[in-house]
Design a protein around this nucleic acid. Structure first.
Lengths: 110, 110
DNA sequence: AATAATTATCGTATCTTTACGATCAAATAA
DNA sequence: TTATTTGATCGTAAAGATACGATAATTATT
């Protein structure tokens, strides 16, 4: 991200940006869609569905996990990933509120 | 974005990612908040409010414009920016639908 | 006309992201 | 035990993002 200046922004704005950034790649959107549509959260299934290298998928999963949107559980040699519903609700509320609040600029400007 | 493989994802996923990416920086969140809260969309006002260099703000404005979330109108020497309400509604609907659809993973996984 | 104000763009340095192959660690199978 | 599967991590290359100062272009002011 180049030189970062996150400290000059509000906590809320940083939170929103962090969630949005996690959603800011089509591969991660596709992964989240998979996690929601099927109950099959096995990492290998994701790798099979999305034409990216296994290491790349693993990297995207890590970012989603870091952002708090998903969580993984070891099941033997495999790993089961799923959406972290609690954090998901937080993200949904934060983004939803933000998107809703920014209406009504009206016709008096621009 | 490093090497890009946007072509392997659906149009919808790319659209979502593009909007989310535009929101993926606290400075841009702060700018959008300003554009919504006041009617003052003058570029100079934004530069005064946010402690970043003028060129940096201009760059963020350009990205928001490229993403389609805002539009600018020249007013003499100044430029008036405001939220593009039409595109905003599209983004809100797309993100909203996505965020809403991804619930109900349930307790049977993870 | 000359100066000042306003904003975009250029050039640049630095850090981050994306993607891949290779490798490692842990669990399972042979 | 040895081999295989599974997924994370390392190393790395290429591209993008972030930030700044300097400069250019346009309009407004003097």
């Amino acid at each position: 991200m180049g030189i970062s200046k996150a400290d000059i922004f509000s906590r809320e704005d940083n939170l929103l940006a962090r969630f949005a950034k996690a959603l800011g790649h089509p591969a991660r959107i596709a992964i989240l869609r998979l996690l929601a549509q099927r109950q099959a959260c096995i990492c290998g299934d994701i790798v099979e569905e999305i034409p990216l290298a296994q290491s790349t998928i693993s990297q995207h999963l890590k970012e989603l996990k870091t952002a708090g949107l998903i969580k993984g559980e070891i099941e033997g040699a495999k790993v089961c990933y799923c959406i972290d519903e609690e954090a998901w609700e937080v993200a949904k509320a934060a983004l939803g509120t933000f998107l809703d609040s920014n209406t009504g600029c009206g016709a008096n400007c621009c």
